[in-house]
Design a protein around this nucleic acid. Structure first.
Lengths: 131, 131
DNA sequence: TCTTGACCTTCCAGTGGCTGGAACCCTTAG
DNA sequence: CTAAGGGTTCCAGCCACTGGAAGGTCAAGA
């Protein structure tokens, strides 16, 4: 398989696949013209990484998960630990975003949104009050 | 005021303040030894930006908000529009994160988390099933 | 045979919003 | 005289790509 087909089948852009090779996720062989040749196992790996990324795991976490995946001796507790840690980070982000949203919707409700210059949103940014 | 005091009072690191000058948010004067001198208005502006950033507005949005703030002729509808747009983006991010979290907590619940190698989390990353 | 177009290659630079560090200058206290 | 604690500039790095330039390769069609 050439990189284009792998990109198609994994849903990961060629640019990203080359980048993943750069950072050591993959080691595709090359044929005599210099093109990368991918095996099914490499496609599988890429798909794995793609799913992990879409669950918000960062590159280092993906690396760890991949290593655990390939280690038939691992206990599932190692994986679970990584996932739980990650869920906590996600929860924290959600909490931050909800706080932002709530403040903003509050201010938006208070803002007439017309042609007049008076604006509680700017007032809040300016003096921190209006909560 | 020197940069250190401004940093202290605005809660924004000196590095960031210099960066904000770089990108044209501020134009502090200099005294004869080359040090930046800040007026109260500049401190105020920084605090404004700090609040806007903490509500998740990006730099360009901050620039727009600041311009509106300084334009005494603006209508509050312009501000409201920016804020509403921003809330929508936040909502989208929240939805993404919640989807991630739900998938993950689901998988985590299914994962024994013990010494055995069997792991629904890795299985899901590997084949996309297990939902 | 030539050309066209779709592939593929490498390398370099840019994204956003800072942040760290090096190397240096200025001021004040001891 | 020195040391500490300001300040200055400039360059590099973070993360995870992404865009673009400049060029090599291959298969199909005129």
């Amino acid at each position: 398989m050439n990189i284009g087909e792998v990109a198609e089948r994994s849903g990961i852009p060629t640019k990203t696949i080359r980048y993943y090779e750069d950072i050591g996720f993959l080691h595709p062989k090359r044929n005599e013209n210099g093109y990368r040749i991918f095996e099914e196992t490499e496609l599988h790996k890429l798909t794995f990484i793609g799913r992990a990324r879409s669950l918000g795991f960062n590159i280092e976490e993906c690396r760890a998960l991949l290593a655990l995946y390939e280690d038939k001796e691992r206990g599932s507790s190692d994986v679970k630990k990584i996932a739980q840690q990650h869920v906590q980070e996600i929860e924290a982000k959600i909490a931050d975003l909800i706080a932002m949203r709530d403040t903003l919707t509050h201010l938006i409700t208070a803002c007439a949104g017309d042609h007049r210059p008076d604006c509680p949103i700017l007032d809040n940014l300016s003096d921190g009050k209006g909560e």
